[in-house]
Simulated scan of single mutants.
Amino acid sequence: MTTTDPTEAVVLRLRAAGCVFAEDEARLLVDAARTADDLDVMTQRRVDGEPLEVILGWAEFCGLRIAVDPGVFVPRRRTAYLVEEAVAVTAEGAVVVDLCCGTGAIGAAVASRVPGIGLYAADIEPAAVRCARSNVEPIGGRVYEGDLFAALPAELRGTVGVLIVNAPYVPTDEIAMMPPEARDYEPLVALDGGFDGVEVHRRVAEHAGQWLAPGGHLLIETGESQAALTAAAMSAHGLLAHTSTSDEWYCTVAIGRRPNDCQPEG
């Protein structure tokens, strides 16, 4: 009697659909499916372009299993570099804010590496807030819904040691060129960075100084072509700014520090 390996059939379907990592994805789908019918449906969803992480209900990020719900921005592997840069400037017990948090993966990853932080996260999308709560609240963090700083408790003003932001930075005109799994399944507000990709970064930089503690850091993931603009937005509002790029992660982060002896503009 010949036993048919379901993984092989899934690999063939995924390859035909253009999935680059068909073998890895097939194994994950087979492991997650409860029945043959489940596997068929899940495979078809992936063939149709739905993000694998949404189909599985989770994403691996910085060694953590992060819950991912439909309609929520999926954490990217490259953002591990933003986490690394944030961890490097996060003191034990610091107040950390994950703004535009999506799933809350960034804040959760920093909390897993720096003990005792006070973790807060916020997003404008209700679906993201619900998802982030499932990832952040079990580790003692709090999640708020609203537009950037308007979502945060007023008592955090001037106390934030590290403000981490993965806001959208794709220029509006380039959204149509994004992969379908992002363009068709993730919220536009999590992708569209405005005419040059830096509109949200400017809004964050304008008010960040009011929320950072003296010596506190603002870190924003940005595109290599937008990095100078993101850093300039920080400098324009009194932060000491520079950029850092990782060839390994293919990621660029703009970093601004509030001076110890003055209140930046904003």
Rank of each mutant, 00 (worst) to 15 (best):
A127Y: 02
W58C: 10
E155G: 08
G146K: 02
A208L: 12
V97H: 06
E137N: 02
E60H: 07
T245F: 11
A122P: 06
W211N: 00
Q210E: 15
R157A: 04
Y144L: 08
R78N: 09
E181T: 12
L28M: 14
G104A: 09
T2M: 12
H201G: 14
G63Q: 05
L28G: 10
D123C: 00
A132D: 03
P171K: 13
E221A: 09
G102W: 05
M177Q: 15
D38P: 02
P153S: 13
P75Y: 08
P115R: 07
S235D: 14
L163C: 02
A151Q: 09
Q263V: 15
R202V: 07
A132E: 01
L240W: 12
G161A: 10
I220D: 06
A213H: 10
I220V: 13
L14S: 01
I139T: 03
P115K: 07
G57Y: 07
M234G: 09
E206C: 02
V200Y: 03
R15Q: 15
P70F: 00
E248T: 15
L212S: 08
I255M: 13
S112H: 02
Q263M: 15
R142T: 05
P264D: 13
V72R: 07
E248D: 15
G141C: 00
C131D: 00
R13K: 09
A132K: 04
V74R: 08
E125F: 01
G193T: 01
V129M: 03
R113N: 03
T2K: 14
L56A: 02
D196V: 07
A232Y: 10
F149S: 06
I55V: 10
A233S: 12
D69S: 13
L191I: 00
C262P: 11
H201F: 10
V30Y: 01
C262A: 15
T243W: 08
I175M: 10
A154W: 01
L64W: 03
Q210V: 14
L240C: 09
V72S: 06
G140M: 03
Q44F: 04
E92N: 12
V97I: 08
D38F: 03
A22L: 13
A67Q: 08
E8A: 15
T79K: 03
A127F: 04
A67H: 12
D24K: 04
A94W: 00
P214S: 06
S246P: 08
